[in-house]
Amino acid sequence: MVSALHGVLLECDEPTREFILSLNEGKPTAEKFVIYDLDDTRLFVQPTVVNWLEQRLKEFAEENTYQPPAKN
């Protein structure tokens, strides 16, 4: 019997995938959102978390860049 699961396929580079997995680890069991860890660059996740995930990724990228202060 074939089963079909609705979700979102994320394709990204490996560091990003690791970051997403670590976010998933930090969640209590009931809120885990990664359905399947497909391979090195692909994850299958719950469709509900996509916006939140995007926001977190943006914040993560901001944290990792040095912004020289503006000269005034």
């Binding site: 079909a4 979700g7 994320l10 299958f44 995930l53």
Partner: peptide, 18 residues
């Protein structure tokens, strides 16, 4: 490229084929 690190597509996953 940095702003497009993750490509997402709404999808269905099929498994447990006979």
């Amino acid at each position: 490229a940095d702003t497009r690190r993750v490509r997402q597509s709404r999808a269905y996953l099929y498994e447990a084929f006979d």
